[in-house]
Write a protein that binds this DNA or RNA. Sequence first.
DNA 1: AGATTAACTTTACGGTGTCAAATTTGATCG
DNA 2: CGATCAAATTTGACACCGTAAAGTTAATCT
Lengths: 201, 201
Amino acid sequence: MTTAKTRHHHGDLKRALIQAGIDLLEEGGLEALTLRKCAARAGVSHAAPAHHFAGMSGLISAIAEEGFDIFSKYMTDAIEAGEQTDRERLRSICRGYLQFGLSHSGLLKVMFGEHGLGIHAPRKDNREEAEAYLILRGVCAPFVPEGEDPHIVEAQVWSLIHGFTLLYIGGEFGCTSMPIEDSPFEAVMALIDRIGTQAKT
Amino acid sequence: MTTAKTRHHHGDLKRALIQAGIDLLEEGGLEALTLRKCAARAGVSHAAPAHHFAGMSGLISAIAEEGFDIFSKYMTDAIEAGEQTDRERLRSICRGYLQFGLSHSGLLKVMFGEHGLGIHAPRKDNREEAEAYLILRGVCAPFVPEGEDPHIVEAQVWSLIHGFTLLYIGGEFGCTSMPIEDSPFEAVMALIDRIGTQAKT
DNA sequence: AGATTAACTTTACGGTGTCAAATTTGATCG
DNA sequence: CGATCAAATTTGACACCGTAAAGTTAATCT
């Protein structure tokens, strides 16, 4: 009765396991994420997680869901900083996307990975779309030509920044550090700037 | 003496193991790729691969390298089909990229994954760049403003099609099948068409 | 208080990568 | 030709993994 949920032994094991998983992920990358290690970190036996998640894939899904929350925060923080034009917000959300990827690369890979339930899966709050995608949609909206399908602009922005982030994280552009004013990122931003302008030639 | 390498027992185990790995990958996805299963498919004991690869990560690297060869083939096939303008070639290489991803999603994930040595790693033929990247570079070249860094256009094209392919494979656009004339892909192509035009406003 | 049930532990099993020590095999040399 | 030698492969062992079944504890309910 100390919290909402009646806690028999541990207190809020489900949460603890998810957090342990995220920590493991950040410390040792994808390969360090293990059911047994999560359990050990939470101070329970290795079989305890089975009562809260549908196996390893269930835990991964829960971690991914948590990851999308953090992800959303990165993006909202980026677009809510100061007064920004629509175009600046488009740039900012990309910056937030990349920054999340750089700070939580393991988490990002899990989120879009095998059992990571991508951005469209129904969530705990049973909303249709994930919050992260609604944020993206909102920022893209001003660039959708009237009468056109919003998905077009969303697919353009999303593909571009998603691909860049993954390639950047993977070291494909040479640098893995944070200096975002690099040329490859600016190149992508330049292309972002062409979204929504003169639709037909 | 039947081949270049003196074969003691098996005959070309290294190759057989790589092929087994690729097969496993296509049949059962990432989770099905296992050292022991590769060995079993090649008809050798579970410890045999250790003498040809530096553990699991070494095998993955070798599979990835093979994957990049197949990848290159997809792209060259796409851009060499019929007479094409520079712009059509740019579209075609993207189509080849996506088609490879759709046909070999597991392989693609391995290639750009943890031990997958991305597209820039030095290869067996000790060329500086992977063939795949050289192909991309060649197709991008006509759209690089003179005096500008070619990497800019390459990063734009690559990020866009890489991101789209991964999202598409992941089912984030709803469909996982082959109909490429879908709206999301056409949206990305439309953005591709804006690359290299009017560099400054 | 007694029964019930949820939370967790214990134990066990098959599969995994990796390592060290045999063992086989093909080639080489005297 | 036969002994030798080194490479290729096997065998066996280990620690770790996910999962499942059965057992234990503790809180709740009547």
